[in-house]
Design a binder for these strands. Structure first.
Lengths: 346, 346
DNA sequence: TCCGAATATGGAAGGGTTTCCACAAGGAGC
DNA sequence: GCTCCTTGTGGAAACCCTTCCATATTCGGA
C-alpha cells in the first residue's frame, strides 16, 4: 500500500521525527495524527504523509501512559475448546478488530489457582479498558473485585448482582424444552448433564435443571424426575447416555440434555446401542451448536457469537461515554424443532 | 491473601508513594520490586511490605515504555472454533500464565482484509514481545513482514523460510495413513478434504494430499487416485462424504480424510447411509481429536495443545536471551489404530 | 471598524516507570 | 595500610507521547 519505512535506518522514528519532517511542532503532529484538536487540512495531510514515509507508528505505551486508555479488551473464559466459548471469542474479536482494539485472552476455570493469579496479577495490571467475563460463577468476592477494577464490564452467561450481564433465561429454557417433550406425550423424561459431584457447579446448568424440575412438577410428573450427571462435552454426554440407556427397562423415552454437546453425545450413544432417534428416544438440547443440523437435533439456539459481538460493542459504547449499562440484557433464543424429537408412541 | 489496597483512597498509588512509605528512594523501591540490581534483603522486605499495604501495582505502560518489554505474546489464528486452533490456544495460554505474560489474540483468515488490518495496524503497534502464528500461508510478503517486526516468532503448522516453525511432516503423514490403508489390502482409496476451489489453499492439506498421491503411486495405484473437496469441519466432511458415498458402484472401500473432523463427518454420514465402518468402509484421519476415541477413529495424533505450549515456551526462552532458534522443530505424532480401519474384504 | 469566537500552531509540562551514573561503605587480597 | 571489587543507595535522565496553556491569525456579526 503506502510507502514503508526505510528499513535501513536502525532507529525507529518517533513523533518528533515526523514533526521535523513535516515542518511542524510535535503537538501539531500529534493532533494531526490522533485527530483531536484543530489542525489545518493541508497540515494534517503533510503530517500524515511524513508519518507514512517514515513508517511511524505511535508507541501505544507512551500514548496509554498519558491517555489512560489501552485500546484492549480483556476476555475471561473458562476454556476455549468448547464451541460455545470459542464462538463468543470469535464474535468479540470480530467486533473489536474494526475498532482497533486488542483482545487479551485469559483462560481459567472458576475456583482455581489460575483464576486467583488472573485476578491478583493479570487483571490487577489494568492493561485493559473493558472486560468481558464469560460463565462467571457467582462468587461475591470475584464480583466485588471485578467491580473494583472500575472498568466497563459485561458478563456473558450468569446474572450477577451489580454487573451488566448478557445471557439467556436458563430456567425458562429448561422449562421450555421439558415442556416440549411433555407436549409430545412423554412422561419418562430424564435430564442429562447435571454437574458431576467432583466438579464445581455451573450455574447455567443448575438453572436449566430447575426449569426441568418445574415443568415436570407442573405436569404432575415430579415423581418421574431423574437427573444424570455429565460434563458438558460430547464425549461425556456419550458416556453418560451409554450408561443411562444401557438398561432397556429403565430407559427413558425422552432426554433433556444440558447442552447440545451432551445431546449430540446422547444421539451417538443411542445409535450405537441401536436405539432409534426419535422413534424410540427423543433428544433435545440447548445452544444451537454447529453440528445440530447434521444430527437433526431439536434445540434452543442462543447464538454465542452474536453474544460475544454484542458484549464487545456494549463495552465500546460505554468507553465512548455511553451510559454505564447496568442490569441484564436478554439474548435472543429460538426453539428449532428438528427430527430428534417426536411424539411418544407407547 | 495479602492486605488489599485501601479502596477509600481515590488516588492510585505510584512507586513514589511506595518509596516514601518504605523510607527509600524511588530507584531503590524499583530495584526491590523488580528484583534487578543490588538491594539489601531487609530493605527489599520493607519495600515489598509497603507496596502490599498500598496495593501498589506497577503501571505496565510506564514500565514497558522504558524497558521495551510488553509482557505479552501475540497469537494469530485463522479461527477459534476449530478444535485444533482452540487447543493450541489453550496450550499457549497455559504456558504463558505462570510466566506472567498476556496472550493477545488475533483471529483472521489468511488472505483477507482482516489479515491486512492485522499486519498494518495491530501488529505494527508492536505491543507484543513475541508472536505465535498458526497455519500461516506461505505468502512471501507476510513472512517478510513477520520477520520485519524483529520479535521472536514461532509458526505452528507450515514450514516457512526464515522463521522458526513447529509442526508435523504433513506429506509424510499423508503417506503414512494412505500406506496404512494399502497394507490393509485396500486399493480403492479416496482422499476426502481437499481444499474446495472457492477457498484459499491450506498448505497442510496440500501436503497431506501429496503424501496420499505418493503412497498410491508407489503401490501402483496412481490411476485410483481420487480427491474430494471439503472444508475442514465435521459438517463439511459429512456433506462431502454423503455425496461421495451415495453411489454404491463408485464407492471407495477406504477414505483418507484430511483431518479428524472430516473423518468424523464421514463416519456419521456412513452410519446414516447404512454403510458399516469398518467392514464396508475404512476411515482414517489426522489430528487426534477429542472425539476420535468415541468414534473409534484410527488417526495420527498430533497434540496441538502441547504444540501451543511448546511454541510459547520457545518464545519465552528466546526472550530470556536464548538462541534465536531458527529452523524447524518436528512435533511428535503417533499413529493410533482403532476400529475405523480394517482389512479389505472383497 | 471593532470584538469575540473559532481556528491553527508551538512550547512545555506531565504521565510512572527503569536505569545510568555517582557516591559511600565494607571486605578481601597484597 | 592501601587498593580494588562488591554491595547498597539516591538523584536525575530517559522512555515517547498527549494535552494544557499561551499566542497568533482569520472570520462573521454588530
Amino acid at each position: 500500500m503506502s510507502a514503508r519505512a526505510d528499513r535501513t535506518e536502525n532507529t525507529v522514528s518517533g513523533i518528533a521525527d515526523v514533526a521535523r519532517a513535516a515542518g511542524v511542532s510535535q503537538s501539531t503532529a500529534s493532533r494531526a495524527l490522533t485527530g483531536r484538536g484543530y489542525v489545518a487540512p493541508t497540515t494534517r495531510e503533510r503530517v500524515r504523509h511524513a508519518a507514512d514515509t517514515l513508517g511511524y507508528v505511535a508507541s501505544t505505551n507512551a500514548a496509554s501512559l498519558v491517555t489512560g486508555r489501552n485500546r484492549a479488551i480483556a476476555v475471561v473464559v473458562p476454556r476455549v475448546t468448547r464451541w460455545y466459548f470459542a464462538s463468543i471469542l470469535e464474535g468479540a474479536e470480530r467486533a473489536l478488530l474494526p475498532h482497533g482494539y486488542d483482545l487479551t485472552l485469559y483462560v481459567a476455570e472458576p475456583h482455581t489457582r489460575d483464576r486467583e493469579t488472573l485476578y491478583g496479577h493479570f487483571l490487577a495490571r489494568k492493561r485493559f479498558d473493558g472486560l468481558i467475563a464469560v460463565a462467571l460463577e457467582p462468587d461475591d468476592e470475584e464480583v466485588s473485585r471485578l467491580v473494583g477494577f472500575g472498568k466497563p464490564t459485561v458478563c456473558i452467561g450468569n446474572d450477577l448482582e451489580g454487573l451488566a450481564t448478557l445471557g439467556i433465561d436458563n430456567a425458562a429454557i429448561g422449562w421450555m424444552i421439558t415442556q416440549h417433550m411433555i407436549e409430545l406425550g412423554h412422561t419418562d423424561i430424564a435430564f442429562l448433564g447435571a454437574t458431576p459431584p467432583e466438579e464445581a457447579a455451573v450455574l447455567d446448568v443448575e438453572d436449566r435443571v430447575r426449569g426441568y424440575r418445574d415443568a415436570m412438577a407442573e405436569s404432575g410428573l415430579a415423581s418421574q424426575v431423574r437427573t444424570w450427571a455429565a460434563s458438558l462435552t460430547v464425549t461425556a454426554g456419550y458416556a453418560a447416555a451409554a450408561s443411562l440407556l444401557a438398561d432397556r427397562r429403565s430407559r427413558p423415552s425422552a432426554i433433556v440434555a444440558a447442552c447440545d454437546e451432551v445431546a449430540i453425545g446422547t444421539i451417538i450413544a443411542a445409535r450405537r446401542l441401536g436405539i432409534a432417534v426419535p422413534s424410540q428416544l427423543s433428544v433435545i438440547g440447548v445452544d444451537g451448536h454447529d453440528y445440530a443440523e447434521m444430527f437433526a437435533l431439536t434445540t434452543v439456539e442462543q447464538h454465542p457469537q452474536q453474544q460475544g459481538e454484542h458484549a464487545a460493542l456494549a463495552i465500546l459504547g460505554m468507553l465512548e461515554g455511553g451510559p454505564p449499562d447496568q442490569g441484564r440484557t436478554e439474548a435472543s433464543t429460538r426453539l428449532v424443532v428438528r427430527a430428534s424429537t417426536a411424539a411418544f408412541t407407547g
